[in-house]
Design a binder for these strands. Structure first.
Lengths: 182, 182
DNA sequence: TAACCCATGTAATCTGTTACATGATTCC
DNA sequence: GGAATCATGTAACAGATTACATGGGTTA
């Protein structure tokens, strides 16, 4: 329900096309909310109908035309209304963790294999976020402070995950020692 | 897509009614996957059609009848097939974090208020998970080890969140000092 | 007497995913 | 020559949420 608001947050700072937004969802805001281009184009259509955004056509040569969207007064009002209401708690749906919870059914080696794949991903993300955080030179501007805090959230999250992975490794190792020593 | 598998994981250990499962989704496995009773009843219906579970009627007095579900061979096969495939990465949809990312639009005091509400919730969860982890006496059984690891994931996650909240507080405080001192 | 627990579900709606579609340009 | 980038979308389907429905028993 708040793909809408994530889009409005992005349109706060700049006029953007659906394509631009999709790219940002793959980067910056994607850290906290992700969406595909299909969803974005659909939602932009709805936002336009409700006069929360408006757009202008930009013909380009060599490239397809663009629709550059801008937030309207109504859009800003909607966003501010939403910001005032307490946020719905995120719903947790982590398939990998379902596997861990049901781990007794698989074998440790296949769990470890997938754990390492996931860990690679997390390490990669951690690096990306740390790079981005380092590049935020002026943390004293309002906007940058919130971007920084968002990145910190991502960083702490990845670190916590990696620490947990280390615990999993040592538990599984301990377990192996127990069974082989019998 | 893996509500199905979360249910099958739960039915691994014990026969259960939809109601029982809903309770567990609110507790144990809810830590990694959540679902409402409507979804669960629907999915149990589908699983039954596909012969992945079967049920028997238990009449009760003073209470409504129950349907106690059990996993079948087909169900176990499906679960094992699923466990072998790499899990889809969880999609991130955190409305509160969208608010932080768009924080420059609200005022620090309302952000702090909501931060504290969320922190209360996280602290509560942390306590619950820590209690449950402490009560897991015999960590050497396969099943308990995986439950323990699942709980550890929840614990590290809550801690990381709370540490982040502390960073937010000090950043906002620093920010306030900057603006009031001008 | 009100709220909550037990126990099941259906229906309407909203969101999200996957597949399909087009077409020029640029980079390897 | 093939893949990726730019740029837009539609349609079918799957998954999730919200509202509605029932009704006895227990606890505050």
């Amino acid at each position: 329900m708040s793909l809408r608001h994530a889009i409005l947050v992005l349109l706060q700072d700049q006029e953007a096309s659906g394509y631009d937004l999709a790219r940002e969802f793959a980067n910056s805001i994607g850290l906290v909310w992700n969406a595909t281009h299909q969803q974005i184009y659909l939602e932009l259509g709805k936002l336009n109908e409700k006069d929360m955004v408006k757009f202008r056509h930009i013909p380009q040569d060599g490239k397809p035309d663009k629709k550059m969207y801008r937030i309207t007064e109504e859009g800003r009002d909607e966003l501010i209304r939403w910001l005032r209401k307490p946020a719905a708690p995120p719903r947790i749906r982590d398939a990998f963790m379902v596997k861990i919870a049901g781990g007794a059914l698989s074998d440790p080696s296949s769990i470890l294999r997938e754990l390492e794949d996931q860990a690679d991903l997390r390490r990669e993300r951690l690096n990306t976020f740390e790079d981005l955080a380092r590049k935020l030179d002026d943390r004293d501007s309002d906007k940058n402070m919130y971007t920084y805090l968002t990145l910190r959230r991502g960083i702490l999250d990845q670190q916590a995950w990696l620490n947990w992975a280390e615990e999993v490794r040592s538990e599984l190792r301990r377990r192996e020692d127990l069974t082989t020593s019998v």
